[in-house]
Design a protein around this nucleic acid. Structure first.
Length: 293
DNA sequence: GTCCAGGCTTTCC
DNA sequence: GGAAAGCCTGGA
């Protein structure tokens, strides 16, 4: 990557940062804990750290943080070792993707914590983004570690499997307002805690094998598994097919209504090992422009 | 083995 | 009042 890092007190500044647009990254549905501030900056919690991200001209300002956390956490979280200019060039050989990558030019795919990503996308099933965000925040506030305060706001980490595994189905339903997803959350937390599903092993597995492993979890089907593979396990070839991707693929490529399975195959054929990136550009374009609705 | 229908909590538009 | 980044179960 081509950028210069400047360290100031409690700040890391990435000078002349290309391919980094906060709105596109944080409002594209891959992460549910980003909150827009009055000044247009965004604040989140990840890996038990809270962080504000502000774009000024072509600079990205991370606050509060330091060089250690940048090297150990944020460099990987923001996927800074991936060259998005090259990815967009390659995808632009396809006319539709040329348009979609220009539209969502500053998108990056974050590398999030596996357990938080699994629970978040279990909650996402047949749900809406505003409500998903509220549920995830409620879990953090009630069961996560208190991390500190920034501008009068308190921040909490995402709970660990052992904490969620002990909560009752009734309590989690009442607190997080997750409806029928209550039991799925508790069951999956227990399966991970008891090592019935070894989620760490997924890092070293090819996408298809990792998908089989993740689908052993309660509430994890093909779509949620693909999201977790892409957003937590860095599997750039995973191609999650949700209602929006189904619509946009039918609208631009298939030209007819078809099944989720066929759309997944088509995505794989068209975009190969870049399918995950293609999916994210398409999803962002489709949702922002309400394609096919 | 694949495919499909119906049910599921609650909130948001 | 319909739809929502789907999954699970049961039956053909």
């Amino acid at each position: 990557m081509k950028y210069n890092i400047i360290e100031e007190k409690d700040k890391i500044i990435l000078k002349n940062m290309k391919d980094f647009e906060p709105k596109s990254i944080f409002e594209c549905g891959q992460a549910f804990r980003w909150k827009v501030e009055d000044d247009g900056s965004y604040t989140t919690v990840a890996y038990n750290r809270f962080l504000n991200v502000k774009k000024e001209n072509e600079d990205i300002i991370l606050y509060p943080t330091n060089m250690d956390d940048f090297n150990n956490i944020w460099y990987n979280y923001f996927d800074l070792d991936t060259n998005y200019t090259e990815i967009k060039e390659e995808l632009s050989k396809d006319e539709i993707l040329k348009m979609a990558t220009e539209y969502g030019s500053g998108i990056r795919i974050l590398n999030q914590e596996p357990f938080e990503t699994i629970i978040s996308f279990i909650i996402s099933a047949n749900n809406q983004i505003p409500r998903i965000k509220k549920s995830v925040e409620a879990l953090a506030k009630n069961y996560g570690e208190y991390l500190g305060e920034l501008n009068g706001e308190k921040y909490y980490g995402f709970p660990t499997p052992d904490v969620l595994a002990k909560v009752s189905v009734e309590e989690i339903r009442e607190i997080a307002r997750v409806g029928f997803r209550d039991k799925r959350i508790i069951d999956s937390a227990n399966m991970i805690l008891n090592n019935e599903v070894d989620i760490k092993s997924v890092f070293d597995l090819p996408k298809d094998e990792g998908k089989v492993e993740l689908q052993k979890l309660a509430g994890v089907g093909p779509k949620v598994a693909d999201c977790v593979l892409l957003f937590a396990f860095k599997k750039g070839d995973a191609f999650p097919v949700d209602t929006w991707v189904k619509r946009v693929m039918e609208y631009f490529y298939l030209k007819e209504e078809t099944s989720l399975g066929k759309i997944g195959k088509k995505g794989d054929e068209l975009f190969g090992n870049l399918a995950g990136y293609a999916q994210q550009y398409l999803f962002y374009y489709a949702r922002e422009e309400a394609i096919g609705k």
